[in-house]
Simulated assay, not measured.
Amino acid sequence: MNQIDQKTLVIFQPRFEKPTVLPFVKEGISAGFPSPADDFLDLSIDLNQELIKHPSTTFYGRVRGDSMINAGLNDGDLLIIDKSLEPTNRKIAVCFVDGEFTVKRIAIEKDKIWLIAENKKYSPILVTEDNDFIIWGIVTTVIKNVS
């Protein structure tokens, strides 16, 4: 299949009206033996400050579809997208192609741009002059539900 597989990504910009500060276990949480984490709950973290480096150029988007599952991006995952970052080879980018948003790994050659899915069901897409195309932003973080 050589098509944009995503439904339109829902894109929205975060609001920073007031910080959301939550308890934080600074020492890390052991995935092996239990640790006495209660001693560290006095610390706090604001995820906006932790995950968003350029608030005026940062947006959220929700993944729709399965073309990026082998990169760890699953249907319903929340992406943090920074429009100020330089699109470089092998980055995961949100692109606007012929009226639709899609998320793909970009492959930049001398005079060609390829959009590469991370699922063997989908063929790479060569961007041509005939496409209405822009690399809209670079994915910096993926937030996923695990339950």
Score class of each variant (00 low, 15 high):
residue 47 L to G: 06
residue 31 A to W: 00
residue 44 S to Y: 05
residue 15 R to I: 04
residue 3 Q to A: 15
residue 68 M to H: 02
residue 127 V to N: 02
residue 45 I to V: 15
residue 48 N to D: 13
residue 120 K to M: 07
residue 69 I to W: 00
residue 121 K to A: 13
residue 44 S to D: 08
residue 31 A to K: 07
residue 62 R to D: 00
residue 140 T to E: 13
residue 122 Y to F: 15
residue 59 F to K: 01
residue 77 D to E: 07
residue 90 R to P: 00
residue 27 E to I: 12
residue 84 S to W: 01
residue 37 A to L: 13
residue 22 L to N: 02
residue 84 S to H: 06
residue 105 R to G: 04
residue 120 K to S: 15
residue 48 N to W: 01
residue 98 D to W: 02
residue 29 I to Q: 07
residue 43 L to V: 05
residue 72 G to R: 07
residue 75 D to T: 10
residue 56 S to R: 02
residue 2 N to H: 09
residue 146 V to A: 10
residue 107 A to T: 08
residue 83 K to H: 09
residue 7 K to W: 05
residue 53 K to Q: 12
residue 58 T to E: 02
residue 141 T to W: 14
residue 125 I to Y: 14
residue 19 P to Q: 14
residue 33 F to W: 01
residue 77 D to R: 09
residue 73 L to E: 01
residue 96 F to H: 12
residue 64 R to F: 10
residue 132 D to M: 08
residue 43 L to I: 05
residue 94 V to Q: 04
residue 121 K to Q: 09
residue 45 I to Y: 04
residue 128 T to W: 03
residue 58 T to L: 03
residue 66 D to S: 13
residue 140 T to S: 15
residue 103 V to R: 00
residue 108 I to A: 09
residue 88 T to Q: 09
residue 19 P to I: 01
residue 92 I to L: 05
residue 75 D to S: 13
residue 130 D to I: 00
residue 61 G to W: 02
residue 113 I to G: 06
residue 56 S to P: 00
residue 95 C to K: 02
residue 124 P to R: 05
residue 33 F to T: 12
residue 68 M to I: 00
residue 18 K to C: 09
residue 34 P to Y: 06
residue 23 P to T: 13
residue 88 T to N: 04
residue 112 K to Q: 13
residue 46 D to F: 03
residue 50 E to N: 08
residue 104 K to R: 12
residue 80 I to P: 00
residue 146 V to R: 10
residue 60 Y to L: 12
residue 42 D to L: 10
residue 129 E to Q: 14
residue 23 P to I: 12
residue 91 K to A: 10
residue 105 R to E: 10
residue 112 K to A: 14
residue 87 P to Y: 09
residue 138 I to D: 04
residue 112 K to W: 02
residue 113 I to F: 04
residue 102 T to H: 07
residue 36 P to R: 08
residue 33 F to Q: 13
residue 52 I to R: 03
residue 9 L to M: 10
residue 66 D to Y: 09
residue 86 E to R: 11
residue 11 I to G: 11
residue 78 L to I: 15
residue 138 I to W: 01
residue 40 F to H: 13
residue 107 A to F: 06
residue 41 L to Y: 14
residue 70 N to H: 13
residue 22 L to D: 03
residue 49 Q to T: 05
residue 66 D to N: 14
residue 3 Q to K: 15
residue 90 R to C: 03
residue 4 I to D: 06
residue 33 F to I: 06
residue 113 I to H: 03
residue 80 I to K: 01
residue 50 E to W: 08
residue 116 I to Q: 10
residue 124 P to M: 07
residue 129 E to Y: 08
residue 86 E to L: 12
residue 12 F to N: 11
residue 27 E to T: 15
residue 85 L to A: 07
residue 118 E to N: 07
residue 33 F to R: 12
residue 12 F to P: 00
residue 112 K to V: 08
residue 30 S to I: 12
residue 94 V to S: 09
residue 12 F to E: 11
residue 129 E to C: 11
residue 140 T to D: 11
residue 51 L to W: 08
residue 72 G to S: 13
residue 60 Y to S: 06
residue 142 V to Y: 01
residue 90 R to N: 13
residue 98 D to H: 10
residue 58 T to S: 14
residue 101 F to K: 05
residue 49 Q to D: 12
residue 131 N to P: 02
residue 30 S to V: 09
residue 109 E to S: 15
residue 52 I to P: 03
residue 147 S to E: 11
